[in-house]
């Protein structure tokens, strides 16, 4: 489903070139729950952004379901991203002036998803947020915000969900709930890649990839 071939991402800093990703090659099968693990600065978030089609690699290619995403124009890539990839961030990134349902529906702005509102309500219900649907993000707890972000990520029924430290701001209980929802999505056939430097997500993983200094140092199937 996802093929990463010899991806390099180089940053030119004052002290010289730094390879944030240094020749990473991976094949990730459909329906995987992959945990990208590693210390800060190991390149896992950079790799996630490259997979997300938001960070053009200095070399190599990223192919999703046969589409080399960096051969697409910026506009085509944006549409591809909207239709195929869902995002979950550590800081939730909910729009503060929109209600929860409006935040979820924001994801349908590009894809023009059919019956978006009813689908959004269903997902919100699955994530136990129905009574918070018309609240603003500032009125929600951290766990509720992350569940809202998951709902937004799921609205367009993407093939791939990319989660960058989704439990980084949550207590263990809420972290379990969030990972549980991602696991449910995975069980329904979706592919999930979670970047984390903790161990909690590993219990749900079908594969754990360890990164250090921009390289894959371990790749373990669970």
């Amino acid at each position: 489903m996802l093929a990463i071939e010899n991806v390099i991402k180089t940053y030119h800093k004052r002290m010289g070139k730094i390879n944030a990703i240094d020749g990473v090659s991976l094949d990730i099968a459909k329906g995987s729950f992959v945990v990208l693990n590693g210390p800060s600065g190991s390149g896992k978030t950079t790799l996630l952004m490259a997979i997300a089609s938001m960070l053009h690699p200095s070399a190599g290619s990223v192919t999703i379901d046969g589409t080399d995403i960096y051969r697409l124009s910026a506009m085509q890539r944006a549409r591809f991203r909207a239709a195929n990839i869902g995002f979950i961030f550590q800081m939730f990134h909910l729009i503060p002036y929109l209600s929860i349902i409006e935040n979820v529906l924001f994801a349908a702005g590009v894809t023009k998803t059919q019956n978006a509102r009813s689908t959004a309500k269903e997902i919100i219900a699955q994530l136990s947020l129905t009574d918070r649907m018309h609240h603003r993000p500032s009125e929600l707890s951290a766990g509720e915000k992350q569940r809202a972000a998951i709902a937004r990520a799921m609205l367009n029924k993407p093939r791939l969900i990319l989660a960058d430290e989704p439990t980084g701001n949550l207590d263990p209980h809420n972290a379990e709930i969030v990972l549980g929802h991602l696991s449910d999505y995975n069980r329904q056939g979706g592919t999930v890649i979670v970047v984390t430097h903790g161990d909690q997500a590993k219990r749900y993983a079908t594969r754990t990839i360890q990164m250090e200094n921009g390289r894959v140092v371990a790749d373990t199937a669970s």
């Binding site: 944006a78 549409r79 994801a107 590009v110």
Partner: peptide
């Protein structure tokens, strides 16, 4: 900035 980044991530283009 956060909103713009999110919009970009969700596929909104420069014209929007």
């Amino acid at each position: 900035q956060e909103e713009i980044g999110l919009a970009r991530a969700l596929g909104y283009g420069s014209p929007t």
